[in-house]
Design a protein around this nucleic acid. Structure first.
Lengths: 233, 233
DNA sequence: GCAAAAGTGTTGGCGTTACACCCATGA
DNA sequence: TCATGGGTGTAACGCCAACACTTTTGC
């Protein structure tokens, strides 16, 4: 037995929801399509899965093509499989979400793909079911970030607590108390002091921290709420 | 443009992790394969996605074939896509988990598929990557049940609080305090009294409740911890 | 010195835990 | 009437939201 007979084979694509953070707002990396179908419209970055390519590898390849980055944080969210989701031909789509630091990426690669960073609040309508994908990815981000310390991938390697707070405020669109946020975060023991300070500040310079990767991996499931319960209803 | 040229098409299967509860233990519905490949070994229930079938429909069809049940609680977990996960031929597999009340299902359909309910503690090794799928599904169940009131699908329509407690104890393999469990649960307002009592008990008969479906839907994300934080590390 | 941002302390309320106690049932 | 399991009460503790105060920096 070396193959399954009489079974349908289907096209399988990857679509990437790429989140970035510029210090103020959550942004999405979107492309204005200069190819068919739906040329001229906005969509997520995507591509077809190849014959000999694991799904995760495929997602990483597509992200690399657009951003020039390897070792990005990616996470499979779900697969979309409605028969008529792609009007050209039935295509399944595995949705991945990625978190990257906007400052890191390769601007040439982005430009050559006709892509741009667009804030969530100004997102245009996207093709197919891509709007729904973005909504689901955002929900996932909120859900996870409410329970786990998340989002370090969206910041520089060395970051300050106020920067991380800004990120959380952007994710949930609410203000958080500076003092409580800081204490809760430090109590996790996830941050290592670098001894340096943020020179960009015009006033008191905040301490720069680095993520303790080992502890982050091992204690990821030590749940932890950054957001008041009332937010999550 | 009516199709995508020069792209690989792939086999896509569904595999179902079917959880049940018998009042004491969490069980899995597994089949002893009387067909190739891997005839004679144990596996999850599965099947190929058809040409004109949405993924969720495909999962429901496969569950119906085995259990005779419709309107089962199913949830897509993730897609497995490693190139060599199926030794016969590359096959992607979309993993679904289902929760059903063991007492409900169609025993003839189960028997004709050579399937059995097997407690997690006695699970045999399964084919391909199905062991990994079960582990991931169990993690998902634990994760969700820690945050949301979950598992009503595993119980009869009318159930007692002690029954639900037994379920939670089985999911986490830990004892829970009867009194605290009961109060926490009632405080959610998710349970409606039926006025009836459980006649099966030999001692004091517990009150039977019914799930308030509307409230359950709308407040699912009102997070809620049944399990001490220490369990979740 | 002043405004603006960062860091440290203190409090009260609320939810959770860990118990003791009472009730219903059948043998 | 006793054993078993179900239901209600409560006190201590800990966490967290809310808010006051101090420190650093540049103009």
């Amino acid at each position: 037995m070396n193959h399954y007979a009489n079974q349908t084979r289907l096209l399988v694509a990857i679509d990437c929801i790429i989140f970035g953070f510029d210090g103020q707002e959550i942004k999405l990396l979107l492309i204005k399509r200069n190819f068919e179908p739906e040329q001229g419209k906005w969509s997520l970055m995507g591509g077809f899965v190849k014959e000999d390519e694991d799904l995760d590898v495929s997602a990483s390849r597509i992200l690399y093509e657009l951003t020039g980055l390897t070792n990005i944080y990616v996470e499979q969210v779900q697969i979309f499989g409605n028969v008529r989701r792609d009007p050209v031909e039935r295509t399944l789509s595995v949705m991945y979400f990625a978190l990257i630091n906007i400052a890191d990426h390769d601007t040439d690669a982005v430009r050559s793909h006709n892509a741009s960073w667009i804030s969530l609040s100004q997102k245009p309508n996207l093709i197919f079911d891509h709007d729904e994908m973005v909504a689901i990815a955002m929900d996932r981000l909120r859900y996870k970030a409410a329970l786990h310390p998340l989002g370090f991938e969206l910041l520089p390697e060395k970051f300050t607590i106020p920067q991380l707070q800004k990120l959380y405020e952007a994710v949930y669109n609410i203000p958080l108390d500076r003092r409580n946020f800081s204490r809760k975060l430090l109590s996790t023991g996830l941050l290592q002091e670098t001894g340096e300070k943020d020179e960009n500040s015009a006033t008191k310079k905040a301490m720069l921290y680095r993520l303790n990767q080992d502890r982050y991996q091992s204690r990821f499931n030590a749940f932890w709420n950054f957001v008041p319960d009332s937010m999550l209803v």
